[in-house]
Design a protein around this nucleic acid. Structure first.
Lengths: 227, 227
DNA sequence: GCTTGGTATATTGCATGCCAGAAACGAAAA
DNA sequence: TTTTCGTTTCTGGCATGCAATATACCAAGC
């Protein structure tokens, strides 16, 4: 065969997974904790109608999302976007801490120097007062940093597992970054983590990442009473 | 109202979740790596027929199982029981190590003395030569030990996350426990872990649990070529 | 006014039918 | 003998219909 570099056609798009992705994206883009109760409802027919498909793929998508705990179903009553209680959010951060700290260990032991350097670049454009001025932008960088550690660890299973709870962690970090000037502490922590990774100190990197995440949990526990 | 202590009726049993549980139980009870390729196939109509239901709930159950990575689907070709490659098994053990070591930390910090003592009881009936004689029985105890640490940590989200990969860890541990007299090393490790928990040494318990799991990964990597 | 009971409506859960795409088979050509 | 092409059959993906249950609404009784 001629040496054509063909990219897989993969319109791959079974309708049900496209529906899944569409709903997931819509939920992810929503600030779950600032919308009113009534819009948490996910009506099968309504979704099917809006997306121009039948109810079957919508139901399959909802089943997937339920397994992912992004939605909950009440038998015979329907599907609803899942809001996590404060206790559940604390648990999620704990699991995240477990996964990201293991990822940090793996990065310290195995990632290339270039990969680790890419962590530094995420914050390259920020200095002290640029953070306060562009808090949203910094919050995004912050999330990318944590996500990137998990990507770099090279463990696909770990990445997928973390991905499942990422959406919740994202909303927590976004909520809390502005509280009590946490970002000043945050940027310092991040630099220490990067330094530990550069020094290939797996134990230290692991500990720093874990403590950084658990500090977030402690902060949420102490400060966010309205969850 | 009279002070009747009523328990929820929970006939709970939507057909689709019962189908899910039935298939899941069947897969879990199978030794995935000792059956031939052809029986990995999961035929929708066949399953529906055997279970006496229509294809719809079967499909929903398969979607759930796919999300759980117990089965894989090839578009337009069907669902198959998922066999993990060796690389994937190593990743799974890594994720397990992350979760169980965090659980150990939480147990050391927060579990009751009685709870920790219950870990010791799991091995109460075993001594050195009783292990070799009843390897299957010891393997079960071994699995219960690790699962129990995760239960005792009190973090439901962590437990559910671990549950999702438990089935694979189970088969790995069961496979490998007899190799190279690993059980002698295993029982010693377990005792050290229990001692660290009793001493409330969170850092040590975490480290021991992690290293115990990662040693399993290293063993699989070195010894199980036929995966 | 509040509670209780009954009816209507809406929506989910499941069954089933149809169609497109993949595998399996076989025949013909190289 | 091997490969290629065409046909058949089978199976999953989706649409849709039907039945059961939950909710809403309203009327009647205390």
């Amino acid at each position: 065969m001629a040496a054509l570099s063909l990219v897989s056609i993969r319109s791959d798009a079974s309708i049900s997974v496209r529906v899944y992705e569409a709903i997931r994206a819509a939920i992810t883009a929503t600030n779950l904790y600032e919308i009113d109760e009534s819009s948490l409802r996910l009506d099968e027919r309504e979704l099917a109608g809006k997306l121009g498909v039948s109810r079957t793929p919508v139901r399959e998508a909802l089943v997937r999302l339920e397994h992912e705990e992004l939605v909950v179903s009440f038998p015979r009553r329907g599907y609803f976007i899942a809001r996590k209680s404060k206790a559940e959010l604390l648990e999620i951060i704990t699991v995240w801490a477990a996964l990201e700290s293991m990822a940090a260990r793996l990065v310290a032991l195995g990632a290339s120097a270039g990969a680790i350097a890419s962590l530094r670049e995420i914050f390259a454009t920020f200095d002290g007062h640029r953070i306060a001025a562009n808090l949203d932008e910094y919050s995004d960088a912050n999330l990318r940093f944590h996500q990137r550690i998990i990507e770099l660890c090279g463990c696909e299973t770990l990445r997928r597992t973390a991905d499942g709870i990422m959406v919740h962690v994202r909303s927590i970090r976004h909520r809390t970054i502005g509280e009590n000037e946490r970002f000043t502490r945050s940027i310092v922590d991040h630099m220490h983590i990067i330094e530990a990774l550069e020094a290939r100190d797996a134990d230290l990197a692991e500990r720093l990442v874990r403590d950084h995440a658990l500090a977030l949990a402690a902060h949420v526990d102490a400060n966010d009473h309205d969850l």
